[in-house]
Simulated scan of single mutants.
Amino acid sequence: MKMGNQSVETDFILSGLFQYGQMNIFLFVAIVILFSVALMGNIILVLLIRLDTRLHTPMYFLLSQLSFIDMMYISTTVPKMTTNFLTKSKNITFLGCEIQAFVFLALGGTEALLLGFMSYDRYVAICHPLHYPVLMNKKICWFMVTCAWASSSSNALIHTLYVFQLPFCRSRVANHFFCEVPSLLPLVCQDTSQYEHTVLLSGLIILLLPFMAILASYAHVLTVVFQMSSGKGQKKAVSTCSSHLIVASLFYVTGLSTYTRPHYLHSPEQDKAVAVFYTIITPLLNPFIYSLRNKEVTGAMRRLLV
Rank of each mutant, 00 (worst) to 15 (best):
C241S: 11
Q194T: 13
C189K: 05
T254K: 02
A248R: 05
H197C: 12
V225L: 07
L200M: 10
T254P: 05
Y252R: 01
V238S: 09
Y259D: 05
L215D: 07
G233N: 13
S229P: 00
V247H: 02
S239Q: 14
C241F: 02
A216M: 09
Q234M: 11
F226I: 06
S243Q: 11
P182G: 03
I246L: 14
S217E: 13
A219W: 13
K236E: 13
S230R: 02
S239V: 09
I214L: 09
V188E: 09
G233K: 14
L222I: 03
Y252E: 05
T198M: 14
S249T: 15
P182A: 10
C189A: 07
L185W: 05
L187H: 06
F251L: 11
C189W: 08
I206C: 08
V188Q: 07
L204I: 07
L201A: 15
G255I: 03
V181Q: 10
L187C: 03
Q227T: 12
T198R: 12
L204K: 08
L208P: 01
C189H: 05
G231N: 10
V238E: 07
T198E: 14
P182R: 04
S243D: 07
V253D: 00
Q194N: 15
S242F: 15
L208T: 08
L185S: 04
Q194Y: 12
